[in-house]
Design a protein around this nucleic acid. Structure first.
Lengths: 201, 201
DNA sequence: ATCCTCATGATACATGTGTATCACAGGCAT
DNA sequence: ATGCCTGTGATACACATGTATCATGAGGAT
């Protein structure tokens, strides 16, 4: 029954199956057949909608990026009323920290991609990544605004502080995924660091 | 010629071949055959000295830990004369940051193991890990000492500061490996953060 | 000298992998 | 109505992988 079908919808369905596997069992378990089974379709269909595995991996990665973006937008919008500079910054950072189920999923899945990118950097080239740099720039802008509002000491360099913050959040995320810490503990550590940053004394 | 042979030496030779592959091509490329070829021995020998692949992976991981440990010891010993609290802390942190060839190698290889551990946590159980926690404790001790010497504000909590520092270094390391930053830039960011920490004003 | 155990080689086996091919059914345009 | 294009199934292929088996040569111990 070759009913004309919604390609985008099928692609989404398959790519999300891949992401689910990457989250639970890691990317090395995400074979074409496993993805097909998880998505409830035949192997042939996975091949049909994504001719090659690399294409599937890249498409799924892009979708993952979209999911993170959406989540960040939502958290920033919900950053208190009215939003203070610090509440915005906290929103940005705490939604890349694996605290709840979804952020845990996103973080784990990104981690699964991490080594892939490390061992095969040309993948990163094909993917229009730059996402971390964009995020860093956005965070730096927020810090600069907070600085101009007098909430951060003028001695600080916003770009450097943003880079350090993001690195810390990334590292805290790793430790949470590694089971050394709970998400709450990580958030507490982050908060103490923000105390130090947002301190004009 | 079954000359009685030094088992430990052979094991080291093979395990280091595995680590070399993990560094350059990632752990997923470290098949038994690839390791054998890299070590210049036959597949059978890899099986002989490490009956199973998991055993090889674990042994190599332990050796990697030893290498990092040795490097840290050396850097701490070489932390200026006389060592200030800050120089010790800098030594600890900057030797887990991929700045030179060897630390880059160690960091990359650890990263290769990272997702493996994530997707298969029982490996971590078999490995007497705890290494990050030990490191964190040691760092916290140094910070506490610096605090008592009046080089760090008494308002700081050394344990939390240590956790944050280590997370930041970890995150900075990731960004260096990911090519977003050079090792020098990462070190500069870390240094600014240490400026902030070692500031009793 | 005999035997046993250590070290090593060659090769086999079962399985999983990405990809390719063949087939075919139903809708759409002519 | 005919023929082409789209969606889908079944299956094949070539290869890589971890592990197991068989074989064998060389010391050392008895």
């Amino acid at each position: 029954m070759p009913e004309r079908v919604d390609h985008e919808e099928r692609r989404r369905q398959i790519a999300e199956a891949l992401l689910r596997i990457a989250d639970t069992d890691g990317l090395q378990s995400a074979s074409m057949r496993a993805v097909a089974a998880e998505a409830g379709v035949s192997l042939r269909l996975v091949q049909y909608y994504f001719t090659t595995k690399q294409a599937l991996l890249l498409d799924a990665l892009a979708r993952l990026g979209g999911q993170l973006q959406a989540r960040m937008d939502a958290w920033i919008r919900a950053a208190g009323t009215p939003p203070t500079p610090r509440s915005i910054v906290t929103a940005i950072l705490s939604c890349v920290l694996p605290t709840d189920a979804e952020s845990r999923r996103i973080t784990r899945t990104y981690a699964a991609y991490y080594t892939l990118v490390l061992s095969d950097p040309e993948v990163l080239a094909q993917h229009g990544t730059a996402q971390p740099d964009l995020l860093e720039g956005f965070l730096a802008k927020q810090l600069r605004a907070a600085q101009e509002a007098g909430r951060i000491s003028p001695r600080r360099d916003p770009a450097i502080a943003a880079a350090g913050l993001l690195a810390m959040v990334n590292g805290l995320g790793s430790s949470v995924l590694g089971g050394q810490r709970t998400g709450e503990q990580a958030l507490a550590i982050l908060d103490r660091h923000l105390d130090e940053l947002f301190d004009t004394v």
